[in-house]
Amino acid sequence: MPREPLSVVVITYNNADTLDACLREVDWADEIVVLDSGSTDDTVAIAERHGARVAVHPFDDYGPQKQRAIDLARHDWVLNLDADEILSPGTRGVIERALEHPRHAGYRLPRRERMFWTVQHRRSWRNGHLRLFDRRRGRMNDVEVHAAVEVDGPVKTLRAADFVNDGDGDITTRVDKINRYTTGMVAYKLRRRQRFTGLRMVLYPPVFFLRQYIGKRYFLNGWAGFIASVTGAFYAFLKYAKLHEARERQRASSRRGSEPVEPR
């Protein structure tokens, strides 16, 4: 049965180590669009080898760059992937069936995380991410670091499908990413004027750990699941710690600016 034509969009920067696996699993799509930020490795060559339409634009932020890639697509239905994300076997069929008579503005795909030396167990909880959508009814939002698609209309989760985020191959990479992401979120959280930062810093990390390790069944992944839950709790702590630090610096700067200047 005919389905809606599909464009796959990916933004890249020096992703030669993961891009081939990503594009290999979507070579059935009607179009692949790769928006590169000036890679110096084989990223562009790999994209071209898979028949992708490649464009180049300097990177300013995740959300705007993703939106540029979406705007380059020729078809209304878009599958938005990162260069280190790989569709699992069987997901193609689920997506194609959904696009035969799409009744929703978008579809969430459950995501399994790479947990260092292994991949998240299928029976642990997989968070759904809105990646398949009608671009006439959706756009990227303006959240720093964690920008995502928002659509005007109903959304459904395709539970029979999933994809793997293959980005964090070791603990060092995970911790480096946590540090970058939490720094990038400070300005956004300052604008939101989030309250009770100190209380969140104390209480949220242990709650996060228990939610991941027990609630989401990360214990099924053995020590990898334990370490992923601990580093996730560290992420929860660090984003509020950095927000608290930024506010203290603002207060200190304000106090210095209001102090009278003594005559010489």
Rank of each mutant, 00 (worst) to 15 (best):
residue 5 P to E: 09
residue 7 S to I: 02
residue 10 V to P: 09
residue 14 N to W: 01
residue 15 N to A: 06
residue 20 D to N: 07
residue 23 L to R: 14
residue 25 E to A: 06
residue 29 A to N: 10
residue 37 S to E: 05
residue 39 S to Q: 09
residue 40 T to L: 07
residue 40 T to N: 02
residue 41 D to I: 00
residue 44 V to Y: 00
residue 46 I to V: 09
residue 53 R to S: 14
residue 56 V to D: 00
residue 57 H to A: 11
residue 64 P to S: 08
residue 71 D to I: 00
residue 72 L to F: 06
residue 75 H to A: 07
residue 76 D to I: 01
residue 77 W to L: 06
residue 78 V to A: 06
residue 82 D to R: 03
residue 89 P to A: 07
residue 92 R to I: 03
residue 97 R to L: 13
residue 101 H to S: 10
residue 107 Y to F: 10
residue 107 Y to V: 02
residue 110 P to I: 12
residue 116 F to K: 10
residue 119 V to C: 08
residue 120 Q to H: 14
residue 122 R to D: 15
residue 126 R to P: 04
residue 130 L to M: 03
residue 130 L to I: 04
residue 131 R to E: 01
residue 135 R to H: 03
residue 135 R to A: 02
residue 137 R to W: 00
residue 144 E to N: 15
residue 145 V to P: 06
residue 146 H to N: 15
residue 146 H to D: 15
residue 147 A to R: 06
residue 148 A to D: 14
residue 151 V to Y: 10
residue 157 T to D: 05
residue 157 T to A: 13
residue 166 D to K: 01
residue 169 G to D: 09
residue 170 D to H: 13
residue 172 T to G: 07
residue 174 R to I: 06
residue 179 N to A: 13
residue 181 Y to M: 12
residue 185 M to K: 15
residue 187 A to I: 13
residue 188 Y to W: 15
residue 191 R to H: 15
residue 194 Q to L: 11
residue 196 F to D: 08
residue 197 T to H: 02
residue 207 V to C: 11
residue 208 F to Y: 08
residue 217 R to D: 09
residue 219 F to E: 09
residue 222 G to L: 08
residue 222 G to Q: 14
residue 223 W to D: 01
residue 224 A to T: 12
residue 228 A to D: 02
residue 229 S to G: 11
residue 229 S to R: 06
residue 230 V to W: 07
residue 231 T to G: 13
residue 233 A to W: 05
residue 234 F to W: 13
residue 234 F to H: 10
residue 235 Y to D: 14
residue 237 F to P: 08
residue 241 A to F: 14
residue 248 E to C: 05
residue 250 Q to M: 14
residue 253 S to Y: 14
residue 254 S to D: 12
residue 258 S to W: 00
residue 260 P to A: 11
residue 262 E to K: 13
residue 263 P to F: 00
